[in-house]
Design a protein around this nucleic acid. Structure first.
Lengths: 238, 238
DNA sequence: TCTAGTTACGAACGCTGTTCGTGTCAAGTA
DNA sequence: TACTTGACACGAACAGCGTTCGTAACTAGA
């Protein structure tokens, strides 16, 4: 866990500095919360349960976090810290960006449905900032115009988070592996195939195709679509 | 209405007030729920409040909806029904798709943060199906390969929903118009500009650029990126 | 008129995030 | 050493949630 103390964003009012007694600390709370999410999922994470796991009461957590949202936000940033940073000196920048997208996805997927707390916000946690910095270095180094680079990072985060979200949703419903999900997709395809063919000719015709492609293939499609687009912008600016 | 609905004499008042009990129905529940979301936002939508608005108790709603999730799902499909369907006979399919993306976004934005219930799921509501059918017709008509068309619709929905989500988040925090949001963005930019320049050279240098571009411009960027990508796939298949 | 069956819904259950006021204890002062 | 001070700890309570249960109220058929 890199813990460089960056200045706190000034618009977020901090109540108390987290001066701690022995057993409790923001760190301990975060570790415990993450363990709970990994074990039981995000819905099972309540202030009471975290406190209970720490052998205390829910009220004690509010000394370190203004509210549950703040706890979740820091939890997410902590996990983002596990994503390897992309290297600006990679020989093929497109491959590097693609690879990093896959790594990001893998990190999110390894924490159940924690990704659900990723709101469509400008992320300001220290690890998010480090990540953004590294990705900016890669894109600018590749000749992507500044403005496009900024938007590109937005778009990539969005796609990665959305994909992880979808996977988390499947897991939530017991469809963990691709094999588990197959019967479900089969059902969907069947349903589409039996729609009224005069009103839904395309859906009926494409019923088998609609569920084609694993999660990985779809993710690859989305990522390639974007990275190729960025590359075209880089060439246009050259 | 007959003129007989005077208040009952208290000495023979019954337990039940004469409250003009209109026949409860799924339709009535959905309309009321949508009105509440539009007025007070999604977080203010509870089963109790919907029931109260209908002059009944929360338990009554469970005769028409298995649970709150089902109610929300149908609510979303209802709103999706307000999106104009894309036309397969449009002269320029790319323009048609782009236009439809904007219209979709507008519909979501006109219902506060209702878009938050759009989960990364295969949507099976009747209106969602009609929409998917129409979009498939456009893409296939344009020569986009079947498999790509299926994935394309996924991607577009994803981007539209994510964009509407971000806008809804701003609204939630009181930043309704672009002018309202300007001070917030200014703060973010300032914060970035004052990060340690040796650790964050790119973020510091790009502090003004990071917040550049209105929501509309960013949305246009994302949509164009995708549609152009689809077009390349169509050409490759020709 | 009586009965059977459906719908309506108040009350209650167990949960949630958060706040208040008191309890507890370490450090500072006399 | 004894006393005071002040910050952290946290049980209890509050207001709200989604959902269920048992019964009350009404409708339709006999």
């Amino acid at each position: 866990m890199p813990s460089t103390d960056l200045p706190a964003p000034p618009w977020r009012a901090r109540k108390k500095p987290p001066a701690a007694r022995q057993p409790l600390s923001a760190e301990a709370v975060l570790s415990t919360a993450l363990r709970l999410v990994d074990r039981d999922g995000l819905d099972a994470l309540s202030m009471r349960r975290v406190a209970q796991e720490l052998g205390t009461g829910a009220a004690s957590l509010y000394a370190y976090f203004a509210n549950k949202d703040e706890l979740l936000e820091q939890l997410l940033d902590r996990v983002i810290g596990d994503i390897p940073l992309p290297r600006a000196d990679a020989p093929d920048w497109r491959a590097e960006v693609r690879k990093n997208c896959w790594e990001s996805r893998a990190v999110f997927l390894s924490h159940r449905d924690l990704v659900r707390v990723a709101r469509a916000n400008i992320p300001v946690g220290p690890n998010s900032l480090r990540y953004t910095e590294a990705m900016l270095a890669v894109l600018r180094g590749a000749g992507v115009p500044d403005r496009i680079a900024a938007w590109a990072i937005d778009q990539m985060s969005l796609v990665i988070v959305a994909d992880a979200l979808e996977a988390a949703l499947h897991v939530e419903q017991g469809r963990v592996t691709e094999a588990d999900a197959a019967p479900y997709f089969e059902q969907v395809s069947d349903y589409l195939a039996h729609l009224p063919p005069d009103e839904f000719p395309n859906l009926v015709a494409m019923a088998p195709v609609m569920i084609e492609g694993s999660g990985d293939e779809r993710f690859a499609f989305a990522i390639d679509l974007m990275v190729d687009g960025f590359a075209r912008h880089a060439e246009a600016a050259r």
